[in-house]
Simulated assay, not measured.
Amino acid sequence: MKQEELIKIMIGVAKGIAKVEGRDTEVAVHDLHEMQMVFIANGNITGREVGTRMDKSIYKMILRQSDDDGHMIAYRTMSEKGKRLRSSHFIIRDEKGEPAVLICINQDDSKLEELRDYINYKIHVNTDEECSPGDSGGNIIQNVAQNAIMNSIWKMTTGDLDTKEGKITLLKELKRQGIFDVRATTPYICKALSISQTTLYNYLREIKNEGEDDSTPLRLK
């Protein structure tokens, strides 16, 4: 199947998703051969439009963090206007198994969150987040690291994650957020940046030597 035909089919799928989910859900289709957006519905949510170039660092992060099916589901991101979004990505591969199309879904859950808060208030539900018996500690930790990494990448305006400088810029932001105080996040961060734990430790030491860190010792979990 030609790239143009695949894109046409995926745009049809994206239109259907947008109709089902409604106006609070943005659905975009990216041509990964040209690395640009070819379709978007409800683009007012992020302010993007057709023709927007795809950021190479974000694309590579999606490739690293997606599951075996090429899916990255329901992680937190933030729009340029500071709006919290629930985002998902689906990588569509061609007949040769190469990434060809990316479907991006950004959902504005603010109305649902307001409704949830109202219901919790009315019925006096304890809203403290607790782990259910079926929760996996590893999954929770992975989500914490993944969300922090993706949110920080969306905020980055300088630095490419393919460079040492870009990686250090991201690590400074993650350290500022206290991500390294969360146990067992280090392996996920190393995977996302394609670096070893030794390299990560060296980068963090450089940050400390630059005076970007406080006086507390480095703690790799």
Rank of each mutant, 00 (worst) to 15 (best):
4 E>H: 07
10 M>G: 05
13 V>M: 10
15 K>P: 00
17 I>C: 02
17 I>W: 06
18 A>E: 08
19 K>W: 12
30 H>L: 05
32 L>R: 00
32 L>S: 01
33 H>C: 06
41 A>D: 14
41 A>M: 10
42 N>G: 03
42 N>L: 00
44 N>K: 08
45 I>P: 00
46 T>V: 11
46 T>A: 06
51 G>K: 11
53 R>P: 02
56 K>Q: 11
60 K>A: 10
62 I>V: 13
64 R>M: 09
68 D>C: 05
68 D>R: 12
72 M>N: 03
73 I>N: 02
76 R>N: 12
87 S>K: 10
89 H>Q: 08
90 F>W: 06
93 R>V: 11
99 P>E: 08
102 L>N: 07
102 L>A: 06
103 I>R: 12
104 C>I: 07
107 Q>D: 04
113 E>H: 04
114 E>C: 02
114 E>Y: 00
115 L>G: 01
116 R>E: 06
124 H>N: 13
124 H>A: 04
125 V>L: 11
125 V>A: 08
127 T>F: 07
138 G>S: 12
140 I>F: 01
141 I>M: 05
145 A>T: 01
147 N>P: 08
147 N>R: 10
149 I>T: 01
150 M>I: 05
150 M>Y: 10
153 I>K: 12
155 K>A: 15
156 M>A: 12
164 K>P: 03
164 K>M: 14
165 E>H: 05
167 K>N: 05
171 L>M: 08
173 E>T: 15
174 L>H: 11
176 R>S: 13
178 G>P: 10
178 G>M: 09
179 I>R: 11
179 I>H: 09
179 I>Q: 01
183 R>V: 11
185 T>S: 04
187 P>W: 02
190 C>L: 06
194 S>N: 14
198 T>K: 14
198 T>R: 07
200 L>R: 03
200 L>M: 07
202 N>C: 03
205 R>E: 13
205 R>K: 13
208 K>V: 00
217 P>E: 13
220 L>E: 04
221 K>D: 09
221 K>M: 00
